[in-house]
Amino acid sequence: MSDTPPSIEDPMAEESVTDTEEFDSLVGIVADGVVGAAGGLVGTAMMTVVFLIAQSLGAFSLTDFAILTELVGLTGYVPEVLFGFFIFLGGGMFPWPLLFASLKAYLPGQSSDAISGAFFGAAMWTGFVLAFYTGQTGVELVLYAVLTLLAHVVYGVGLGMVFEYFASRPDSIV
């Protein structure tokens, strides 16, 4: 037996079906992917600025992106640094935003995606700092650690800000 008479419609039942249909639609999934890629592009662009500052201080070299080209076995076939940076950019635009979207509910900073993104970027840094270490010592090592951490925090903030912007738009399904 139902609590509401048959002549009265239950507005909650209709609303939840609509939300589920929008969330599960192919358009909704693609839109979420575009938002993630845009956030990753913004975050990686902001991160690159910090890397350029680190390079000017001698703590990091953009030529280190050639390591990625070597890992995929294309050394000698493509411009190593440029191709390595495009691999890095692709990682920043696709798998990392997807992981952030999956984990942001569990990250500190529930009130803001930008704060959650900062923590996400700091966690990502732990792998980067080891993978791209090229023998810096002394002050260069300290600058390398601090500036690459800053770059990753900036990446996470940029990624989170884009997520937050699109989530707050009235017609967004993100």
Rank of each mutant, 00 (worst) to 15 (best):
V30Y: 08
V30S: 10
A31H: 14
A31L: 11
A31Q: 12
A31M: 09
D32R: 15
D32N: 09
D32W: 06
G33A: 05
G33Y: 00
G33T: 02
V34A: 13
V34K: 10
V35A: 14
V35T: 14
V35K: 14
V35R: 15
G36S: 05
G36T: 01
G36L: 08
A37R: 09
A37F: 14
A37C: 12
A37I: 14
A38P: 06
A38E: 08
A38C: 10
G39I: 03
G39R: 05
G39P: 08
G39H: 11
G39N: 12
G40D: 01
G40P: 02
G40E: 01
G40S: 04
L41A: 15
L41C: 13
L41D: 11
L41G: 12
V42Q: 03
V42W: 03
G43S: 13
T44G: 04
T44M: 11
T44N: 07
A45D: 03
A45I: 13
A45F: 08
A45R: 12
A45P: 05
M46D: 01
M47L: 15
M47I: 03
M47P: 01
V49F: 07
V49Y: 03
V49P: 00
V49H: 00
V50F: 00
V50Q: 01
L52K: 11
I53E: 02
I53M: 08
I53K: 01
A54P: 04
Q55I: 00
Q55V: 02
S56Q: 14
S56Y: 07
S56H: 10
S56K: 03
L57Y: 03
L57D: 11
L57R: 15
L57H: 08
L57S: 10
G58P: 12
A59E: 02
A59M: 06
F60A: 04
F60T: 03
F60I: 07
F60V: 12
S61L: 02
S61V: 00
L62K: 09
L62M: 15
L62S: 07
T63C: 04
T63L: 12
T63F: 04
T63H: 05
T63Y: 13
D64R: 14
D64F: 13
F65Y: 13
F65A: 11
F65T: 01
F65H: 01
F65I: 15
A66W: 06
I67Q: 07
I67G: 00
